[in-house]
Design a protein around this nucleic acid. Sequence first.
DNA 1: GCATAAATTAATCACCTGTTTAAACAAGTG
DNA 2: CACTTGTTTAAACAGGTGATTAATTTATGC
Lengths: 222, 222
Amino acid sequence: MSRPLRLAVARRPGRPRGGDDPQVRDALLEAARTLFLRHGFRAVSSRQIAAAARVNPAMIHYYFDGKDGLYRAMLEAAIAPVLTRLVAMLGQQETVDIEALARSYMRVLAGNPWIPGLIVREVLSPDGSFRQAFIRDFAGRFAPMLRTVIGREIDVGHLRDDLDPSLTCISLMSLALFPFISLPITTRVLGVETNEAGLEKLIVHTLGIFLRGVARKETAHA
Amino acid sequence: MSRPLRLAVARRPGRPRGGDDPQVRDALLEAARTLFLRHGFRAVSSRQIAAAARVNPAMIHYYFDGKDGLYRAMLEAAIAPVLTRLVAMLGQQETVDIEALARSYMRVLAGNPWIPGLIVREVLSPDGSFRQAFIRDFAGRFAPMLRTVIGREIDVGHLRDDLDPSLTCISLMSLALFPFISLPITTRVLGVETNEAGLEKLIVHTLGIFLRGVARKETAHA
DNA sequence: GCATAAATTAATCACCTGTTTAAACAAGTG
DNA sequence: CACTTGTTTAAACAGGTGATTAATTTATGC
């Protein structure tokens, strides 16, 4: 029992044995993702994040140049994969099937439950700190793309010709996104189920509403 | 020029002449509404509110027992009138016209632009501090009511009989609410207009999508 | 082996937070 | 007049904030 403290301390000062370990950096990113997305940027302190990552608070400044930098890094790490996949999905194919697009979009939201929360907190909230970047890097490109696709469908005659493309965009986004951002409420006041079967029912229902809502009279939904 | 400071200070200590002035209290409530709804609870300090109200910070504790109490009072003052009106609107009439209901609901949102922001920040955001009360006092009553109304319309045969009432509720809320909470984004990426004409177009468009989406085949929309 | 660089710690910095206190002043009351 | 009550102020309080520093330990290059 000569040096009992050694066992309690996870890591003593000094350069670690292994080469360059991304342990500390990754632990900080993970803790930041959990805490920032749950409680928001201002509500979480650097000390809390460091404690959750079992790391010294000074490491935040060492690796990310402060709390702001950690936040930015966490946002990029969280958003980038999904974003690029979604944009690629829309950019690859020339003929876009709106139904398939909405379907995979909703599956992405259901598969990454932190996305709706992030959108609500950082994009839709007044003063959302990510709003500007979100508009520039994503919405600014995605929304006009979608409008173009819808406009073409209207011109071709697949959709009602009295539709406004922009407003139809909004309706589609509303139907596809809002159910997920309101999930914490609707599960409690409407008893919506979040399992796989419930998700599939939601998708089918939503697509049913939208497709009937935009279809020409002759082209009634199957 | 014996006591020049008197002119610079707006009010010296002591009981004011008039009876009980609600000036300070109201000034605090107004400043709180402006700042809280714009920047959120945590981002605004007591000193900022007091400064905006041109009042000593201690007045917050004197009148509202602290920042929390001021927040609660501000929420109640802001929500109560709209809330009671909306619930009364749904409770009075026995035969509910869904189209008229959605229409007036959207007009309320458009007429009180701070409501969408408040819902996003305090209800939909994770850790939204108003979420519990919102569910208990409003959504918990409003949503089941709406579901009942929709379910009856399905049973009567006005709507498709393969519709799920709960999911149809969500679709209606999505279509009616989301365009307003996403307005700061869509105005910039889709150029949506927010004037009276644009609002009317949005309402007509949204109702067109929804009513066609839920209508039976025979009962095609006008 | 020795100097240098990298990684980590404990301690501390200046500042801001919500709140509280003690006093000052004005009005009402006897 | 004295006394109490209500309102307001300036000042301070205890605690938390992000950021920084100096010291410490280890790994690496020569």
